[in-house]
Design a protein around this nucleic acid. Structure first.
Length: 308
DNA sequence: CCGACAGCGCATCCGC
DNA sequence: GCGGATGCGG
DNA sequence: GTCGG
């Protein structure tokens, strides 16, 4: 239900379904009824409570079956799997008769969508940890040849120790790239130089977005039969690096927990900084941190490695 | 009853 | 050509 | 869709 709401353009309903599902999954006991679910679980209200009851009673959900038997919804869900295609573009094409990915190839697409269609199958394949390690080696080696001072971290589920990942999330920083010198970022142009280099060795094959702070593109291990992978490279000023590292290592659930703890203890934690928040709600200057552990220390909770 | 639900970088579109 | 709005992604 | 002001 959540995915459908998202593809319809109702992203907050999507969030509502996602949190409700998360609460349900995290609940240690069996839920005997929709009413109990609504009472016990944060994020489950009347409507979802009734849906839970229906599933308990009948084993299915009428509303969901209705959606799944609606050809427009089925096509919507298909088209939205293409990266670069969202609710607005999908709706437009469905109205003009597009039904399949093959149909989509004949439409006028922007660059991002062209790449999305080109690698449609590849992008849905998981990346085994062994391949992530190969990718990490290529990226690290190549970047260190460019400038030894650049710090490179592969984040996401890989950093948490997962046996497979959905994409490659690379975080970088440089001691000379600070908030103060950020204004010169266009001349500094670290990302562009890195992208050039990785392109030259045939690692990056296509680009989706190529800015001064953020790159999104496609990479392949340069060997026969390799699968195309989505890769992001993000540059953070050194003051923000460890909060960013924490944030992009996740998980999303872990981020929400930390954020909640931070608020309770009078801080605000984001990917950019950790700041004190006074009782009046006024936000203070960011607290400098030089490791992830220091952030845990500030929050007064024991440090847990990403893999925990 | 009604707004928040994160905020932002990049590509592209739109109006001028 | 330019500034702002929109779509999209993570 | 859910929560909270």
């Amino acid at each position: 239900m959540g995915t459908i709401q998202k593809n319809l353009g109702l992203k907050h309903k999507y969030m509502a379904y996602t949190t409700a599902a998360g609460a349900l999954a995290a609940y240690p006991k069996r839920i005997p009824s929709g009413a109990v679910a609504q009472k016990e679980l944060d994020g489950v209200g009347q409507k979802i409570g009734l849906k839970i009851q229906e599933i308990l009673d009948t084993g299915k959900l009428k509303k969901l079956d209705q959606y799944n038997s609606d050809p427009k919804i089925v096509t919507l869900n298909l088209l939205c799997r293409v990266t670069g295609v969202g609710p607005a573009a999908a709706r437009k094409w469905i109205d003009s008769g597009v039904k399949t990915i093959e149909d989509l190839k004949k439409e006028k697409l922007n660059h991002h969508q062209e790449i999305g269609v080109k690698y449609f199958e590849d992008f849905e394949k998981r990346i085994p940890r062994s391949e992530m390690q190969e990718i990490k080696n290529i990226v690290k080696t190549s970047i260190s040849q460019l400038d030894q001072l650049i710090t490179v971290k592969i984040c996401g589920s890989y950093r948490r120790g997962s046996e497979s990942s959905g994409d490659v999330d690379v975080l970088i920083t440089h001691p000379k790239f600070t908030n103060e010198k950020k204004e010169q970022k266009d001349t500094f142009d670290l990302i562009k130089r890195i992208v050039d280099r990785l392109e030259k060795i045939k690692f990056l094959t296509d680009h989706l977005a190529n800015g001064t702070q953020q790159y999104m593109g496609v990479c392949k291990i340069p060997k026969e039969g390799a699968i195309a992978r989505r890769i992001d490279i993000k540059l953070f000023p050194k003051e923000s690096f460890y909060t960013a590292l924490l944030h992009f290592t996740g998980s999303g659930e872990h981020n929400r927990q930390l954020s909640c703890i931070a608020i309770n203890k009078g801080f605000k934690l984001s990917e950019f900084s950790i700041t004190p928040v006074g009782s009046t709600g006024v936000e203070g200057a960011p607290i400098p941190v030089q490791s992830e552990k220091e952030i845990y220390d500030i929050l007064g909770i024991p440090f847990r490695k990403p893999s925990e």
